[in-house]
Simulated scan of single mutants.
Amino acid sequence: MFEVLVFVYENYWRGDACPEPEQLGRKLSAHGFDPDEIRDALQWLDGLSLATQGVQVARDADGTSGTVTLRGTGEAALPQSASAMRVYSSAEQDHLGAECLGFISFLETAGVLTGGLREIVIERAMAAPGDPVALDELKIIVLMVHWSTGIEPDALVLDELCEGREGRTAH
């Protein structure tokens, strides 16, 4: 399924440029993807579309934070309190694993994920196969959430999400 999602991300840079599911399914099939993987990816993308349907994120000038508004209403969603703490359920801890939970925390601290986007990432990760979800797969999920909401991550974030750990030197 994740290979299909990467293909969609690479070929349709913005979520609104992606064709309808039936046409997308035919294109994916023509590129040789397995029918089961296509079905799973289309179902996952449908869930992503529903999760991000009313969400619009406007980044502040410094790029480190953003305002979440509800599309069509112009109303800002309530921001997360600075003293708020996300408590993960046992099911979330089991399915995401320590490495993915740590990465989500890192993205929040870096200002890449707002509280609302974090919840969409977690919801979509919970809908993904794997126990626990692999970190590389979570990175694809984060990319797809950004893709679906029309947010273009900055170059350093994109590098972190796209590059593997192999060949990196710790400083």
Rank of each mutant, 00 (worst) to 15 (best):
Y12G: 03
E166A: 02
D36A: 08
W147L: 04
D40Q: 13
L143R: 15
Q53T: 02
R86Y: 13
R39V: 00
G63W: 11
H146E: 06
F103C: 03
E3N: 13
K139G: 00
L135Q: 09
L156Y: 09
L107T: 02
M126F: 08
S65G: 07
G167Q: 00
S83C: 01
G150K: 12
Q93R: 15
E137F: 10
E92M: 12
Q53D: 11
A91G: 03
I104A: 02
M144N: 06
A98E: 11
R86F: 12
V6D: 10
S148L: 05
T114G: 14
A82Y: 09
A128H: 10
E108Q: 15
A41L: 04
P132K: 12
F33I: 01
I151A: 02
A110E: 14
V133Y: 11
F103E: 10
G111P: 05
I104D: 06
G54E: 13
L50G: 13
R168C: 00
H31K: 15
L70H: 06
F2A: 04
D159H: 14
V55F: 12
E166T: 01
A76E: 08
W13Y: 10
Y88G: 01
V55T: 05
D60F: 14
L70M: 06
G54I: 01
A58W: 05
K139D: 03
V57M: 09
I151K: 11
L50S: 11
A77S: 01
G15H: 10
L42H: 07
E37S: 12
A128P: 05
W44V: 00
V68R: 03
A61S: 09
R14T: 06
D136S: 13
D94Y: 10
I104R: 09
E75R: 09
F7W: 15
T109F: 12
E92W: 11
L135V: 01
T52G: 04
V87Y: 12
M85H: 10
A127L: 13
D36G: 06
V157E: 08
L138G: 03
R124D: 04
T73M: 05
D40R: 15
T64M: 12
Q93F: 05
E152Q: 13
E99I: 02
M1I: 00
I38H: 06
L156I: 03
E137H: 15
E99H: 12
D34Q: 09
C100Q: 07
V133F: 11
T73A: 10
S49W: 14
R39F: 07
V112W: 14
E166L: 00
G150Q: 08
P19V: 03
D34N: 14
E160K: 12
R71A: 03
L143E: 13
D159F: 14
M144G: 04
Q43G: 08
L107S: 03
A82M: 07
A77Y: 00
T64L: 11
L48D: 02
G150I: 04
I120K: 07
L158I: 01
A51L: 11
G116N: 09
D131N: 14
V142D: 08
A128W: 12
H146D: 10
L28K: 08
A41M: 05
P21D: 10
D62H: 13
I104E: 06
L158P: 00
E3T: 01
T69L: 07
I141V: 14
